[in-house]
Simulated scan of single mutants.
Amino acid sequence: MSRLVRSTFIAALALTAAACTSDPVDKAAKARIFSPEDPPKVVASAAEKLPPEDVADNPRVARRILGMEAAEVTERLGPHTYKAKVDFEWTTKEAPPVRLSETRTLRAGPGGVSGDFHGQLDNSRDQGLEVMRVGGKVYARNRYSTFRQRLRDRGMAERTRAELTGALRDMDALFQGRMLLEPQGTITYEGRTAWRYQVKLGDKVDASAPKQLPALLEPKNGRDETTQRRLAFFEHRVPKSLDGEVLVDAATSVVLKTRLDGHLTVPADKTPEAADLRMSLESALTGIGQDPQLQPPEKFLPDADKPEGIADALDRFGIPRAKTGADAGTPGETDPEDEG
């Protein structure tokens, strides 16, 4: 390349760069790229004003308050302890009642959406789980197992925290959003002013424009009987009664206490047999503003790429691994090189 051509090329590049820097579209793009990162969605949601006195008259405010997740509650309220008990009783004419009771506990530390927490679920069938996040590190276990560190959490802790504290939201959805709140004035709870609402079963919600959801995948051999009953219940359930009370914090619009009793049925013409579900919920927030001083578990297993396999279990019990071509778990043929 001659000196003249090189000079012309450099001049063209300089003119192009100058044009880009003066282009308003380019300036706007650079401003977006180098602008401060937007706050997490939960933080933005926590800044939204939700007047608790509007709950009875504004369905949108009511659904937001009843469905508020634990991360937003912590952003609004600070550290606290949540405890709930949920009782289920399922009855049919052909079988004795099936009962299940759950106890859910969440201790939330300071720090809002990214703060420490310790969640625990236990039920009357001797099952349960625990999840902790302390200093950004996650630990989890089943009821009687040892904690295991979860370095690759992939949102498991966040989902568990939301599910543990979502009993009120789930009950409202189960009763098809028909939870009607009637104001009963204000009371004092945990030293805070709270709006008290009486809960009743409201009118059927207009579902003329349901959400378009994709069709369920059909198993190759058809759905099993248990799945058919479960889907029939959710499709044809009919709320019969719902009563209780809900206390909503006047300052933060967080639900502080709940007591609910509900009854749903499924008609016999919609399922193989008529069924009834009775459920109750009692929940309360305590220790508001008190840091639980959470600490990681004293003993825990390190994170693992995958669970220990069958071969590791055989080694643990002293069972020799099979040689190539032999059945697993049975002694293989002796290797000639090992003889003599």
Rank of each mutant, 00 (worst) to 15 (best):
L168F: 01
L168S: 01
L168T: 01
R169F: 15
R169Y: 03
R169M: 07
R169G: 08
D170G: 05
D170N: 06
D170V: 05
M171R: 06
M171N: 10
M171C: 08
D172K: 06
D172M: 12
A173K: 10
A173Y: 09
A173L: 03
A173V: 03
L174K: 11
L174F: 08
L174A: 06
L174E: 14
F175T: 00
F175R: 03
F175A: 09
Q176M: 09
Q176S: 09
Q176G: 09
Q176N: 14
G177C: 03
G177A: 05
G177F: 02
R178Y: 04
R178A: 04
R178N: 08
M179N: 08
M179I: 13
L180D: 15
L181Y: 02
E182R: 10
E182W: 09
E182G: 12
P183Y: 05
P183C: 13
P183K: 07
P183M: 12
P183E: 00
P183W: 00
P183I: 09
Q184K: 13
Q184F: 14
Q184D: 08
Q184T: 13
Q184G: 01
G185D: 02
G185L: 01
G185I: 10
G185V: 09
T186F: 01
T186V: 01
I187M: 14
I187N: 06
I187H: 13
T188K: 04
T188W: 10
T188L: 10
T188E: 12
T188Y: 07
Y189E: 15
Y189P: 12
Y189H: 13
E190A: 12
E190Y: 08
G191V: 12
R192A: 01
T193I: 05
T193E: 05
T193Q: 07
T193S: 04
T193Y: 00
A194I: 02
A194W: 02
W195C: 00
R196E: 06
R196S: 06
R196H: 05
R196D: 03
Y197M: 02
Y197P: 05
Y197A: 04
Y197L: 03
Y197K: 00
Q198A: 04
Q198P: 10
Q198R: 02
Q198L: 09
Q198Y: 09
V199R: 12
V199D: 06
V199K: 09
K200Y: 03
K200Q: 04
L201F: 06
L201W: 04
L201G: 02
G202V: 04
D203I: 10
D203V: 13
D203A: 14
K204I: 12
K204V: 13
K204N: 13
K204H: 14
V205F: 10
V205G: 12
V205S: 02
D206N: 04
D206G: 00
D206E: 07
A207K: 09
A207V: 02
A207R: 08
S208N: 01
S208H: 00
A209S: 06
A209N: 14
A209W: 08
A209Y: 12
A209K: 06
A209H: 10
A209T: 11
A209D: 14
A209G: 11
K211L: 11
K211G: 15
K211F: 15
K211Q: 15
K211D: 15
K211C: 13
Q212R: 13
Q212P: 14
Q212N: 15
Q212H: 15
L213P: 12
L213K: 14
L213S: 14
P214L: 12
A215P: 10
A215S: 11
L216P: 12
L216S: 11
L216H: 03
L217I: 10
L217T: 10
L217K: 08
L217D: 14
